[in-house]
Structure formats: C-alpha cells, structure tokens
Design a protein around this nucleic acid. Structure first.
Length: 274
DNA sequence: GACCAGGCGTCTT
DNA sequence: AAGACGCATGGT
C-alpha cells in the first residue's frame, strides 16, 4: 500500500487531485511552493507533496521516523477508503454524478484533532484566504519551529494560558476568545480526543458544542475531518443554498453512510457551477 | 429571530 | 482611493 524509500513516501492514489483536495477548504495549512509542489504541516509533521504517475509522493520535512511519517500521511490522505468505489456508487445518481465529475479526485482528509478544531473555529464567518493567514500566524507565533520556516500547529497547552490580547497579532478578530476557550478545554482534558472517538456521533457533537464558539457547523466539521464520521454533513449557509438548488429533496440515498464525502463533491461542483 | 462581534479580501464607484 | 459587501457562524 504505502512505500517509503530514500526519504520518499509513495501513496498510490489513482484519479486523485492533490491541489483540489488541499485547497478545497478542508485544510488551511498547505501552500504551493513550486510547480506542482505543495508544502504543508499537520500536527508535528511537515512534508512536500506532489502527485506523480497516480501516486502521492511525499518528502517528509519534519515529524517522526520514516515509518511513523508513512503511517501518519497514509492516514492523513485516507488511504484506507476506496474512492473509486465511492465515485462509482455516487455516480448512480444523475446529479451527484455531475458533482463527482466536477470535483475530480477530492479526498476527505483525516486531520489532527486540535489543528482541525481550532482551524474550523477560525473559519466561522470567514473566507479561505483569511483563514489560511490566521492559521499561519497562529503557528508562527505559538507553534514549535520545525525548520525551513515551518511551524507545528500550536499545542493546546501553548495556547491555554494566553489571553485574547496575546492573540492580537494573529488578527483572528472576535474568534480569539473562542480559540482560547477551546484550547483550555482540551488542555484540561475536559475535551479529549480518545473519549470523543469512543462516543456515538450525537454525543461527540454535543460535547464539542460545549466549547464557546463551536456551533453545529464547526462541530460537524471536526466530526467529519478528524473523527471521520462520514455520515455528518457540515451544512453552512453557502452549502444550504447549493443543496437547495441541486438536491431539493436532500442528499441522494446512494451516498448513504458517506454523506460528508458526497457533500465535499457537491461543494466543489457548486463552487464551479452556482 | 434579530442583531452584533474583528477585520480583511474583493469588487465597485 | 474610498466605500460597500460579504464571509465554509455563533452567542446573546
């Protein structure tokens, strides 16, 4: 499945679209650093990524040993899910087939818990460009340096003791207090990733929504992008508009169990066509 | 259910 | 150059 040789990690992923996935609004920690080359950070890991001959080719820049890095990125890019099979299944529905066509090769990333929680708190009432900037400044200001000008995402502990004014330079606006509330609850153990994983989706959502600044939408993004609860559909106002125009009767049943992934396809299609 | 909470990217004038 | 508008929302 995943091969690592000469400090390279090769993840076979036929039909994958790296750039579309990286910049589809799931993650805010990647940037293009060359033609077809993308540099990104997730947790303590950093890597250059390219898509070559049907495979994701990663050159780790920071993180654990080669074995750990391989396992981390294979999970990150959701290698255990058969996207070809999903696309075939979604394509049974005429309209959803169009969305699959348009989204060409999107995968739903499995991102580190705390990164995702904070990133999506920042994403509320905000746009991708600005979100990326805020996340970057947060990492530079409070994350561990990884070399090459890259910074790990800050730990909950690093943020938990801060005050909103300490985040002024981050320019997160009114979201600063939300970031800190989330960090404190995670640092104290009140919100615990392992415990959330053991919980049914409804209860995990409820627990997340106890954080000030986490509503239904942000909670569902965390459920989908880190806990891989593919049945949730993080429905925002923009998406609602797209859905009502595209699927007046709701999500097609052929997506059943993978609504969140189907939504990602719809989202990409809608961005092009609506 | 209305309204407010930073500030910034982007589009208009 | 300045102003308007909207934002992958949530709290009050």
């Amino acid at each position: 499945m995943a091969v690592h040789t000469n400090n390279k990690i090769i993840l076979p992923a036929p039909g994958f679209n790296l750039a579309a996935t990286l910049f589809s609004g799931q993650s805010f920690t990647w940037q293009q650093t060359g033609p077809g080359v993308y540099t990104g950070v997730a947790g303590i890991h950093a890597a250059n990524a390219q898509y070559i001959d049907g495979s994701i080719v990663l050159i780790p820049l920071a993180g654990g040993n080669p074995g750990q890095a391989t396992a981390f990125w294979a999970n990150y890019f959701d290698m255990d899910t058969d996207y070809a099979a999903l696309e075939t299944r979604f394509s049974r529905h005429k309209k959803l087939a169009e969305c699959v066509q348009a989204s060409c090769g999107i995968r739903v990333l499995r991102q580190p818990f705390f990164d995702t929680l904070i990133s999506f708190i920042i994403s509320q009432n905000n746009n991708i460009k600005r979100i990326t900037g805020i996340v970057q400044r947060l990492a530079q200001g409070f994350g561990a340096p990884l070399g090459n000008g890259l910074y790990a995402f800050p730990t909950p502990q690093a943020l938990a003791t801060l005050l909103p004014e300490d985040l002024a330079d981050i320019r997160a606006g009114f979201r600063a207090k939300y970031i800190l509330d989330a960090a404190r609850r995670v640092a104290s153990g009140e919100i615990d990733e392992a415990r959330l994983r053991a919980l049914p989706t409804n209860e995990a959502r409820e627990a997340l929504m106890a954080i000030v600044g986490v509503g239904r939408k942000v909670a569902d993004c965390v459920l989908l992008y880190t806990l891989s609860r593919t049945e949730v559909v993080p429905m925002d106002v923009w998406m609602k508009r797209a859905m009502e125009q595209t699927f007046p009767k709701g999500m097609p049943s052929c997506a059943s169990g993978y609504e969140g992934i189907a939504q990602q396809y719809i989202f990409c299609w809608a961005r092009e066509n609506l």
